[in-house]
Write a protein that binds this DNA or RNA. Sequence first.
DNA 1: GTCTATAGTAGGATAGAC
DNA 2: GTCTATCCTACTATAGAC
Lengths: 227, 227
Amino acid sequence: MADIRLNTEQRHKAIVQAATPLFARKGFAGTTTKDIAAAAGVSEALLYKHFPSKQAIYKEILQSCCKTGDPILARVHELEASTSTLVHVIYILMHRLVLGGGATHPDWETRHRLMLNSLLEDGEFAMLVFDRVMELTYPTFQASMKAAEEAGDFVDGPGAPINRFWFVHHLGAILAYVRLPKKPLPHEGAIQEVVAQACWFVLRGIGLRDEAIKAHFNPKALALLQL
Amino acid sequence: MADIRLNTEQRHKAIVQAATPLFARKGFAGTTTKDIAAAAGVSEALLYKHFPSKQAIYKEILQSCCKTGDPILARVHELEASTSTLVHVIYILMHRLVLGGGATHPDWETRHRLMLNSLLEDGEFAMLVFDRVMELTYPTFQASMKAAEEAGDFVDGPGAPINRFWFVHHLGAILAYVRLPKKPLPHEGAIQEVVAQACWFVLRGIGLRDEAIKAHFNPKALALLQL
DNA sequence: GTCTATAGTAGGATAGAC
DNA sequence: GTCTATCCTACTATAGAC
């Protein structure tokens, strides 16, 4: 069945890779070991040489998948704190959440599905992903909010800055989630438009002044970058 | 097994009611007919006298559950369009999404879970729920945005009003979703606080001026109403 | 209207050969 | 390292009695 012989580590990885989209699409209960074996191109027996149980495969997927961060998001920390950076970080975050990573990181859909499954289960994976997202982007986000305030572009509001950060992330996330079924959705206009509107919405929401948004937010130019 | 004999209609309803939280919690694949029968207090055989298949039970649950609207939301249309109404509608919507309906409508958690499952499946149920929410609350929301604009409390922004409505709803929804696992979450502060901050965030987001929010949004007073 | 009993299948996991 | 064959349990669904 297996096309070629792989060493233990390679086969182990291959099984995880093959199983990931299955668990993402059909959930833990809906995925059978038969499915996994077929997707991995091996016999069911071989699965059990590498993993003690189906549960163990799932656990390992959640472990490994929450660690891999989007390569673009990983570089956000390089940006200097400013109003402009605040606008761009938010655009990047929203854009990648909703539109995915294109060629550089095509697997956002899988991650979104694993997130939803996790929220229906124990939420463990979701927590780890939240930690990761925060680690990658919040320092720059927070510093840029502060910079924007000092520049007079920002009006503070009630509540912790971290909560505002999560509101931004949450909106991007749920826009992605409601698009998972490939059905017509309540939103009006093309998805790029909706994302741009959502960015404007959250920029206002965190407290950026309309003039600052107008000055720094150029969604059409950003869209050309196809990031 | 069955405590008492019910007529066809009653038993039918009882099965649906018993099965609903099971499908919500464990998804379609994770719920067994044995579970359903036990929860309904009947034999598995009896399920099949009322429904041709497990799938049929699930379908009927999704059909019936998307029709029942929250009784408070159903009365939103009675409110007159104004800035104040805009603020209150948003608070009511967010509050009920996140904190649930208390005694009047305790089953928000089940609905949230069915929503997440639907987004992982074909999204049909999600669409129907979206329609229902929009039907109940959007007319008042839209009219109040217009009234707020005429009162000078509101600065219009880019994009269709309906999208801003959905951004509001989405944020409330996802705050509820991330709370489904009873785990500590990224947000800072008590959940009532977070909801109040989220309301402020979306009020800004749709374009309400800070002065108008300050004038009309009194979360502590609203919280006392325990609505 | 409801049950017990059971058919038939699919699921997770293992034994043992190569 | 990989497979075929198999075990046993759990699952969906039905038959037939009360």
